[in-house]
Each structure stands twice: as structure tokens, then as C-alpha cells.
Amino acid sequence: MTGVLVADGDRPREGGPGRKEVEVAVGVLVRGDGAFLLTSRPEGKVYAGYWEFPGGKVEAGETVEQALRRELIEEIGVEIGAVHPWRVERVDYPHALVRLNFCKVYEWTGELHMHEGQQCSWETLPVKVQPVLPGTVPVLKWFAEERGFAGATHAG
């Protein structure tokens, strides 16, 4: 993990300099053909309409894996198989300081069902959906590095 990615740095931060970091479990679902799942943030949430990898807050007493399993059932209706911790990124959003625990998932059961009214899209590089949440951009860069796509992280 490196430093902190600052999103919308021109906007004031809620909670001041001593605010608590929010632990988040993020699922990077990857199909056999290499496509990965992005979902849009639902109406009523901060950054509504932005595209991200599904997941959510780690609750007290939960591990990242437990939170990811719970969140993906709640959000997109699938039960996941093995969880492969991948990378961690800290992002300072105006509304929250988050620690994103990205985990790759290659196996799941159930049909995708967007329980929060969000949209979903299976993407490859460069991604077609826009706008992409700032915390998602590093993951696209990591995929580009792994797959040999220099600079081809998102459409623009």
C-alpha cells in the first residue's frame, strides 16, 4: 500500500483532520474471459452514477472476507467462492477516508441481481462506462499492468 489517493481535493473534508478511516471490502469479480464486473453507485448515495467495483463497509467484528461475502449477497445477489486478497488502497474522499481492501473473486453462484437499483457492466480495458469512481482508477491501472496495456485504463 502506498500513500493516500485524494479525490476531489478542492472540496472540504467532512469530519476534520482526525477523522476515522472506514474499512471497506471490495470484490473484483473476474470472469474466465478476463472481463470484470463494475456496478454504478445507486441514486441517493454519494457519487451516485459513478462506476465502481461492488462491496461495502466492514462491520464491527467482521473480517474483510466476511464483509465481502455479506455485501455481495446484499448488493448483487451472488454467493462468492474463494476470496483472493489482492491490494489495498487508501482514498481520501470529501465525505470519508476509506481503506479499500480489493479482493479478486473468480467463482460465484447465483444470478446477478442489482438489489439497490444500480446498473452493472462486464468490462475490459479500456472501460467503456463513465464516470469511474476515483477509488476504482488504481484498480484499472493494476489490471493494465498485469495485462500489458500501457495507459489503457479508461475511455476518455
Rank of each mutant, 00 (worst) to 15 (best):
A48T: 09
T136K: 09
E111D: 14
L38D: 04
E14V: 15
Q130A: 14
P85G: 12
W51R: 07
V78K: 02
E74A: 10
G77R: 04
Q130S: 14
G44K: 10
C120A: 10
D33G: 03
Q119W: 06
Y47F: 13
K57Q: 14
E62C: 06
G156A: 12
T109P: 00
V28C: 15
S40T: 15
L97M: 12
H95E: 13
G151K: 04
P131A: 09
G32W: 06
R90V: 14
V91G: 00
V64Y: 07
Y106M: 00
A60T: 05
G151M: 11
E107M: 04
E52G: 00
R19V: 14
V6R: 13
E75Y: 04
R31V: 01
R147A: 10
G56A: 10
R90Y: 15
D8S: 13
G44S: 04
P134R: 06
R99F: 06
H113R: 12
E89C: 04
N101Y: 08
L29W: 12
V132M: 07
A150H: 10
L38K: 03
L72C: 03
A60H: 05
L133K: 12
H84M: 12
G34D: 07
Y47R: 13
A82F: 06
V4R: 11
A152Y: 10
R31H: 02
P12K: 13
Y106W: 06
V139G: 00
R90G: 01
H95D: 13
C120M: 14
G27W: 03
F102P: 05
E65T: 11
A48N: 06
K141P: 00
F53T: 00
